[in-house]
Structure formats: C-alpha cells, structure tokens
Simulated assay, not measured.
Amino acid sequence: MDTSRAAGRGGLLALAACVGVWLVSSGSAETVGPPLPSPAEALNTLSAQASYPGSIDPLPGSPPTRIRIPVIRVDAPLTGLGLERDGSLQVPPPARRDLAGWYREGVTPGAVGTAVVAGHVDHATGPAVFYHLGALHRGAAIEVARADGRTAVFTVHGVEVYDAEDFPDDRVYGPSPRAELRVITCGGGFSPRTGYRGNVVVFAHLTGTH
C-alpha cells in the first residue's frame, strides 16, 4: 500500500474520532469551540507558484523532535505515530495535552514530500496543543526542530476545514516535489452528541532553516 494514501486514510479516521471531551463535560453549546479558519485563508488554486512563496530546496531526512507555532503559542514535543491494525493513524496519548505526533512511516518534516503532524484539539480539562490551529493565517511560521540539530522553518500557504465524510486525501496527503508540511487537528464544527464534524488542516512549505 502507498504510505501517503495510508496516512491519508489514517489521519481522517483517527482525527475524526475526536469527540470534544472537554466541551462535552463542560456543557458547551454547539456554537462554542476552537476557532475555524476564514475562507480567505484557503489554498490558492489559481496559481501553483503563488502558493509557495520563498520555497527552498528540501533537507535530508531527519526525525523531528519539537514543533513551534509562535503566533498561536504552540511549543510542543513530537512523538512518532504509526498505524493501527485497521489502517488508521495512531494519535498521541489523550492524557498528554501538550504532545503532538508525526507519521513516522512517512516523510520527515523538511525532506522532499508531504510530512504529517497531528495533535488533539482538546483534553478532558481544557484546550490541547492544537486548539488554536484554525486561527492561523497564510504567511504564519511553523518551526520544526529535528534530531540533526537543524530547525526546518515552514510558511503557511493555506488553512482549510473539511467535513469528515468529504476529506480530500489526495489534496492533503498527495506527493509533492517540494518539502511540505500538513498540521491536522479536529474541527469543522462541534455537536455535543457526535463530537467534531471534521478536521482543520494547515498547509505549509519549507522556506528556511536555522
């Protein structure tokens, strides 16, 4: 099986399973929840070149150790995620609200292709690591520290939200000749009965290192 396709199906199944434990336990109304991206932040489909300003050549592969998104105050360790028996992507332990994960069988962030990072939106006692992911705008910086001592710097070029039933695997997880990153969490509206309806996906590309 193509690992990019496996990661696509897995990310969809695992993240769509988030039920909003904190929102349910706090009795929040359906209209209350994490921020959703504005339509203005959607991918630019008119010009591929315009979507990747400042791209640089990919780095050699190296496992990531930490993700930082300064504008939404994310500074979190990363753990490797594999696939469950049903092909779904594992998720970080629910008790670790500060932890995010990366798909270790796929591309490492900064290497050529599409790397995948996923994390919880909430936790039993409140917001989790990617609660504010939907508030990102195009142009925001994402930094991924790597085991080789280098930090890969990505620039956001799109933020979108998808219903679980219409999740576009190819659009999100498809191969790329550049070094790209997807950061994913639950979102798409919330119902106390069924949980989150879908996923927020951040699209970013490599623009620097330090």
Results as ranks from 00 to 15, higher is better:
residue 112 V to N: 07
residue 113 G to R: 05
residue 114 T to E: 05
residue 115 A to Y: 07
residue 115 A to E: 10
residue 116 V to Q: 08
residue 118 A to G: 14
residue 119 G to P: 10
residue 119 G to H: 12
residue 120 H to C: 10
residue 121 V to M: 10
residue 122 D to G: 01
residue 123 H to K: 03
residue 123 H to Q: 07
residue 123 H to M: 05
residue 124 A to Y: 09
residue 126 G to E: 06
residue 126 G to I: 06
residue 127 P to R: 09
residue 127 P to Q: 10
residue 127 P to T: 12
residue 127 P to A: 13
residue 128 A to F: 12
residue 129 V to Q: 14
residue 129 V to C: 15
residue 130 F to G: 11
residue 130 F to T: 12
residue 130 F to E: 13
residue 131 Y to N: 04
residue 132 H to I: 06
residue 134 G to C: 14
residue 134 G to K: 10
residue 134 G to V: 13
residue 134 G to W: 12
residue 136 L to C: 10
residue 136 L to S: 13
residue 136 L to H: 12
residue 137 H to K: 13
residue 138 R to K: 15
residue 138 R to C: 15
residue 138 R to H: 15
residue 138 R to L: 14
residue 139 G to M: 14
residue 139 G to T: 14
residue 139 G to Y: 15
residue 139 G to D: 15
residue 140 A to D: 15
residue 140 A to F: 11
residue 141 A to P: 11
residue 142 I to S: 05
residue 143 E to A: 11
residue 143 E to H: 10
residue 144 V to K: 02
residue 144 V to I: 13
residue 144 V to E: 07
residue 145 A to K: 06
residue 145 A to V: 08
residue 145 A to N: 08
residue 145 A to P: 04
residue 146 R to K: 12
residue 146 R to F: 13
residue 146 R to H: 11
residue 146 R to T: 10
residue 146 R to N: 12
residue 147 A to V: 11
residue 147 A to G: 09
residue 148 D to I: 06
residue 148 D to C: 09
residue 148 D to T: 08
residue 148 D to M: 10
residue 149 G to D: 09
residue 149 G to C: 07
residue 150 R to L: 09
residue 150 R to M: 09
residue 151 T to R: 13
residue 151 T to H: 14
residue 153 V to N: 07
residue 153 V to K: 09
residue 157 H to T: 04
residue 158 G to L: 05
residue 159 V to R: 04
residue 159 V to E: 10
residue 160 E to P: 07
residue 160 E to R: 11
residue 160 E to I: 05
residue 161 V to F: 03
residue 161 V to T: 08
residue 161 V to D: 01
residue 162 Y to M: 11
residue 162 Y to D: 06
residue 164 A to D: 03
residue 164 A to I: 01
residue 165 E to S: 10
residue 165 E to W: 01
residue 165 E to I: 03
residue 166 D to Q: 00
residue 166 D to V: 00
residue 166 D to C: 01
residue 167 F to R: 01
residue 167 F to E: 03
residue 167 F to Y: 05
residue 168 P to F: 01
residue 168 P to E: 04
residue 168 P to R: 05
residue 170 D to M: 00
residue 170 D to R: 03
residue 171 R to G: 02
residue 171 R to H: 03
residue 171 R to Q: 01
residue 172 V to C: 08
residue 172 V to R: 03
residue 172 V to P: 04
residue 173 Y to G: 00
residue 174 G to D: 04
residue 174 G to V: 01
residue 174 G to W: 04
residue 175 P to L: 03
residue 175 P to Q: 07
residue 175 P to I: 05
residue 176 S to D: 01
residue 178 R to S: 05
residue 179 A to Y: 03
residue 181 L to V: 10
residue 181 L to W: 11
residue 182 R to W: 04
residue 183 V to T: 12
residue 183 V to C: 14
residue 184 I to G: 01
residue 184 I to R: 03
residue 185 T to C: 14
residue 185 T to H: 11
residue 186 C to S: 06
residue 186 C to I: 02
residue 186 C to W: 01
residue 188 G to M: 09
residue 188 G to C: 11
residue 190 F to I: 02
residue 190 F to R: 02
residue 190 F to T: 00
residue 190 F to N: 00
residue 191 S to F: 09
residue 191 S to T: 11
residue 191 S to W: 07
residue 191 S to E: 08
residue 193 R to Y: 06
